[in-house]
Design a protein around this nucleic acid. Structure first.
Lengths: 224, 224
DNA sequence: GTCTATATAGCGATAGAC
DNA sequence: GTCTATCGCTATATAGAC
């Protein structure tokens, strides 16, 4: 897609920074096996605690084969994160929310969003990225662009739409989007990242999201 | 469950779970030097990327001396985290907020809280803990209790007070506290954890907090 | 391309002198 | 208590046969 070559004129940020796009190897091939093993192990245990031996063993591949496809542990980690982000962040159909009243739309996409970010895989990826943010700053940036920043842009659109329809009185749609996302994640996300609580049920998620929507819609209700 | 010995009567959670309390060695002593070096290195680079040699070298101490005071790398890491949490989380005077109108009180403690969690040390600690949450689950729990959970309890008190005074209409004070904390951190905290932005200025913090307080107070305004 | 076997280095942890 | 020197192990990465 847009790799390495594309940084010429004033290309928009969306196009320039997402360096997490990587070709997906054909299913069943050795590279695919390796990436799958790396994904399972790195996400479970973090970068430092996983050896190349362990990856090779889990992938049913020799270490030499592993190094033939991925030149180093760093490279393997990057490729694995790119693949995980690609599979996790398939843009859902946010459009359907646009046709609903704002509160219902927020409830719909909010619940979907929280369900996603509280999934074990998303949490594991989040944890690993955060733990290695210092060592892999570009990866961290790319993750942010592909993940949180992307989501904020989507919700910013929803906020602008709601304001255009006079359903909400918003002066800074991007800030409002961030606030809403923060509200629905609230403390639950942190607790999950720290492994101090179990995965919430769909009912619990709905309860959190409903409370957040209520607060948000009332807080941004148009005057009069 | 967790400490094996202490789970008898209905002791409050606060007393049972905070295993991060550790004696502070006298300043200038070797243990103090070691802990300081460990703090700098672990917080900067994470657990796996720091060797005991590196800690010893930075502390101007031999590795044998290091092992004489801290039996293993795990133990050193725990002691270091305990010390960092102790120095960072000195309970400020939240009481002063109680005498103010709710919006002013929230602005005051909110700004202080955000200033704290966006400090480089707090961020580094947060990052390391998150990255190693799998490997050190008890440590993670203890951190959560000493940090986020403690803060939520404090803010829950503020919410209850506000409701008693009919300044806010809150049905679930703990949830409201979580919501407020999430709102004022919003996306800024995530961006900082991912190293995709610089430390915010006090003006930026104030701006975020003001926006959050406005939304929160309006959203929980008593009817009528 | 893929394997077995190995090189080389750095790790956590320890022994023994002082 | 503190040091120097070193053990034993495992890590990343590579050489060479097939």
């Amino acid at each position: 897609m847009r790799n390495a070559v594309r940084a010429r004129n004033g290309a928009p940020d969306e196009a320039r920074m997402n360096t997490l796009v990587a070709p997906t190897p054909e299913a069943g091939s050795k590279p695919a096996q390796i990436l799958e093993a790396a994904g399972a192990l790195f996400l479970e245990n973090g970068y430092g605690a996983v050896s190349m031996d362990a990856v090779a063993k889990r992938a049913n591949v020799s270490k030499a084969t592993l190094y033939a496809h991925f030149g180093s542990k760093d490279e393997l980690f990057r490729a694995m994160m790119a693949r995980e982000c690609a599979t996790l962040l398939t843009a859902s159909t946010w459009e359907e929310a646009r046709s609903l009243p704002i509160a219902d739309g927020l409830r719909l996409v909010g619940e979907r969003f929280v369900t996603f970010v509280t999934s074990p895989k998303a949490l594991a990826g989040h944890r690993v990225i955060l733990g290695e943010a210092h060592r892999f700053p570009e990866l961290s940036r790319a993750f942010f662009e592909a993940g949180p920043a992307h989501t904020i842009r989507l919700f910013t659109g929803i906020m602008q739409e709601a304001q255009r329809r006079d359903e909400l009185s918003i002066t800074d749609p991007a800030l409002a989007a961030e606030q809403f996302l923060a509200l629905i994640k609230a403390n639950m996300h942190m607790k999950l990242l720290l492994c101090v609580t179990e995965r919430p049920t769909q009912e619990e998620i709905r309860h959190y999201v409903n409370a957040a929507v209520e607060l948000f819609v009332k807080g941004y209700a148009p005057a009069g």
